[in-house]
Write a protein that binds this DNA or RNA. Sequence first.
DNA 1: TCTGGGGTCCTAGGACCC
DNA 2: TCTGGGGTCCTAGGACCC
Length: 423
Amino acid sequence: MFGLVDCNNFYASCERVFRPDIRTAPVGVLSNNDGCLIARSREIKDLGIKMGVPYYQIKEQIKRYNIQVFSSNYELYGDMSNRVMRLLRDFVQDIEVYSIDEAFLDFHGYERFNLKEYGEKIVHTVTKGTGIPVSLGIAPTKTLAKVANKFAKKYPGYKGCCIIDTEEKRIKALQKTEVSDVWGIGRQHTKFLNKYNVKNAYEFTRMPKSWVRANMTVVGERMWEELNGIPRIALDEGLDMPKKTMCTSRAFGETISHIEGLREAVSTFAAMCAAQLRKQGSSAVSIMVFIHTNNFKPEEPQYARNCILDLPVPTSVTAEIIKYANIALSKIYRPGFKFKKAGVIITGICPDCAIQQDLFDTNLNRDKHARIMPIMDKLNSGFNRNSLIMAAQMGSQKWKMKQNHKSPCYTTRVSDFPVVKLH
DNA sequence: TCTGGGGTCCTAGGACCC
DNA sequence: TCTGGGGTCCTAGGACCC
């Protein structure tokens, strides 16, 4: 059996942990730049306010219902996530951290356990130990565990833990699950399936396997089998799985027209990618830079380009990656536009141990720089993020995000923790 | 005024190998 | 006259996930 633990309204719940005063108030969290609503507490969902709506469109409701809004604080959410995962590891040996707020548990070998009881204990312990309410779904496959989790969340009667362990329960659950709610079925497949009158997950499992395979590739076939109770997706503990691509991009707080401002942003994104590369012991083989204007304003002149460069020799040296990112930027920059967003994508990555050297390499300083990097990373670790940056990253900082409602990093920055006055 | 960010997997087709 | 069979690697684009 597999378990899926999912934190309820994760970001909103994180904001509540250190704010008992808003525990029963509607709480919402905004995307970067305070753009869209990306997390909602139960109360907001009940008001019918949709996921992903632009902030400015709901300002009136925020006032009317006294909704507490926060800018996203990923440092806080990341740390709270670690706490949840750590507690889960006390209950099962094999866990797959699937996302910031989800983890799969492997109950292989727990046949003698009463999994329903054990599951309730997990839910209770994590909720109590972190302040983050969680739900658990248990079933013979990961896809079914996802289904079970939705029921655990929806119906309080399950006490946070729903288990699909009989054929009757499986069929009933699938009949009550819309096909669009199945893990792996997105908008396109939903549209396609609805065309053939496949509305719920059970109907999907009754379609011929060959038809699914022919129309939805092996991915669809895998989901079909998983829903039919045949495990096809193994637990992935994600040990030492280096990333195959990385991206750092942001929409700017203010639009930028001059290349200097873009250089500053692109250099910062490049430096962030470089640090990430070093963290996983990899180097960039090729790099892409993109810039574009605000496509939500079609009345303004639009411009969007990207440029991919192959590096002469793969590297993770910040200065070098910044250099090539800026070369790419110069190739695509055009004056006369108001740029709203830029990004750096490392499109090709290779492990440091497999770098192909260049006989005619002109950068004779790479080794020297490479020795500096660990020192820079060390200085920037822990509480000292950004204590040492490249000069190219400095300037007007016009690109910096709007974050007007950010909460303190309660658990990771001493200086952020509010002083409690005792009377 | 105002609209997020970061990933993975699969397929088809081209180029190439022996 | 006539021209095989079996592979790999790479990339762009699509679909999906949180």
